[in-house]
Design a protein around this nucleic acid. Structure first.
Ligand code: FES
Ligand code: FES
Lengths: 132, 132
DNA sequence: TTTAATGATACTATAATTGTATCATTTGTC
DNA sequence: GACAAATGATACAATTATAGTATCATTAAA
């Protein structure tokens, strides 16, 4: 049961890499050299981050990318949302018919509560936190 | 990002079904009729639960299965472990080399903390809770 | 004009999840 | 003992999600 997929993992690593070079535009090639991940995968990944406004990219020679926001504005949970969709720990175990009192169902409440806990924690993790 | 797979979901439903018929041995056929799930899938699922000692099964005519433990001894987290493996929300995002201070890494601590929270909550959910 | 970069996007491979099928074994009942 | 109704064990197939690859177009500095 993975909370974070490898793609998110890579993305965060790449972002940390950019964070270490703030102010400079860094080509994907360089990121790939610093953190070990497949080249083509990295390309696509950065393209997505650029489209999502997490990084700013510069085309052409001497191009590359840099963080588009402040470290403390880039949340882990947002990166997760981009690559894995929203954090949603299963809406209802028992889809309709088994549970007669859906609105007051204790399990439903519990799962929701767990989700809130996880979200609260995840929201508190930013690139700034990670770089400490 | 699913915390619970469909197999676990089905398993819990089936167990709740058995809980509603405590003291009686119930054939899988009957479970399948009560909660909607594929017959062959249910067969295999119950077989696993029997092997794991969650239900007790009776072979032969008039056979079937029943809960092997008290409602409050059957934890959601154990059913999850059987069908999905241990709850482990990603050991370390950055596998070695990126994080220099592995032992004090703040992210590591955070992820671990989230895992503990989730586990604590999950452990408190038993069949008894679910039947309330 | 060449070169080094990104943008867009289609494709393949692998693994996990979900679902199916078969045959053997057990046990109550006629 | 034969039959029927159940589980045990286990192999297989289908679908979906994740992980990874490849290609061609576009941009801009040198
Ligand atoms: S389990 Fe879903 S409403 Fe009760
Ligand atoms: S991120 Fe894993 S040790 Fe720091």
């Amino acid at each position: 049961m993975k909370l974070i997929t490898r793609e998110t993992d890579y993305a965060v690593r790449a972002l940390m890499c950019l964070a270490n070079n703030q102010g400079m535009v860094m080509p994907v090639e360089k990121i790939v050299r610093e953190i070990k991940l497949p080249h083509a995968f990295a390309r696509r990944l950065i393209q997505v981050l650029a489209r999502e406004g997490i990084v700013r990219s510069v085309k052409g020679k001497n191009g590359g990318c840099e963080l588009a926001k402040n470290l403390d504005k880039i949340k882990l949970v947002d990166i997760m949302a981009i690559f894995q969709g929203d954090v949603c720990l299963n809406e209802c175990l028992f889809k309709k018919n088994i549970c007669p009192n859906r609105s007051t169902c204790p399990l439903r409440k519990k799962i929701r509560a767990i989700e809130s806990l996880v979200l609260k924690e995840l929201r508190s993790i930013t690139l700034a936190t990670l770089m400490h």
